[in-house]
Design a protein around this nucleic acid. Structure first.
Length: 246
DNA sequence: GCGACAG
DNA sequence: ATCTTGTCGC
């Protein structure tokens, strides 16, 4: 691998815009060598949701993380950053389009969350390096993915009741789960990103699910970045009225 | 060659 | 992802 690309693997390089898909693939393969899917053992006090929002046909991206108390799942703080990207959306390479902006929002957090849930996949990916895994290896954070649609693998439809799930397999290995987070509603796809096991991601996703299809972390993240884009929220780091109680 | 294809 | 109104079902 060229030295320039190797630097990009180990350094939070904020500009993936000039990469070719072939180079991006090399970076994913390199990052994969640093993946850790060992069980997560420490206690969880906070969990954040990460997401971005964009206007159609615009290179401007509104990224953000919303930190929730755990297990209460109440928003206690959030970080919003306006950035830009020209890297196109290519299935399998979402990380290169969204991570630079999310990384800025993450660095803006004075206290990092125990876990980060992404709107996208962890190892439920052709090269086991979805956006959650990519961000995890890059920063060392504990991450997991929650996607609304299947990206890779095969699975049998899980039961129709909330809490039921089915493994998603690819090339003989389980890479995630199709989870029914709400009865009679399409399942979401859960997978570990980094520093946690498949079982950890499944258990956490269910513990973060209330009455909606999307687990609270990603649901709030999606809502906040959207309100940011439409002007209802401002850029920067903020704490909610529940911060002190927490 | 054909089908699949996170956001 | 985003653009959009009504409408069907639990």
């Amino acid at each position: 691998m060229p030295d320039s690309l190797n630097r990009m693997v180990i350094t939070p390089e904020l500009n993936y815009d000039q990469l070719t898909i072939a180079e991006a693939t090399l970076i994913q393969q390199q990052l994969h060598g640093h993946l850790n899917l060992e069980p997560f053992q420490k206690d969880i006090t906070t969990i954040a949701g990460a997401d971005i929002s964009l206007a159609l046909y615009s290179e401007t991206v509104y990224a953000g993380l919303v930190v929730l108390s755990y297990p209460e799942l109440q928003p206690i703080a959030y970080s919003l950053v306006k950035s830009s990207t020209i890297f196109p959306y290519v299935p399998g390479y979402l990380a290169f389009r969204e991570i630079p902006a999310i990384l800025k929002a993450y660095e803006q957090l004075p206290v990092k969350p125990d876990v980060i849930m992404f709107d996208g996949n962890g190892i439920l990916h052709a090269r086991r390096m979805g956006i959650a895994s990519h961000f995890g290896v890059l920063t060392g954070a504990v991450t997991m993915g929650c996607a609304k649609k299947k990206l890779a693998g095969k699975y049998d439809e899980p039961g129709t009741f909330k809490g039921e799930y089915a493994p998603v397999t690819d090339k003989g290995e389980v890479i995630g789960y199709a989870v029914r987070t709400k009865s009679n509603v399409k399942p979401v796809f859960i997978s570990p990103g980094h520093q946690m096991s498949l079982e950890d991601s499944l258990a956490l996703a269910l513990k973060c699910t209330r009455m909606h299809r999307l687990p609270e972390p990603t649901r709030y993240a999606h809502e906040y970045v959207n309100r940011f884009r439409t002007g209802a929220l401002t850029e920067g780091y903020h704490q909610t009225d529940r911060w002190t109680l927490f």
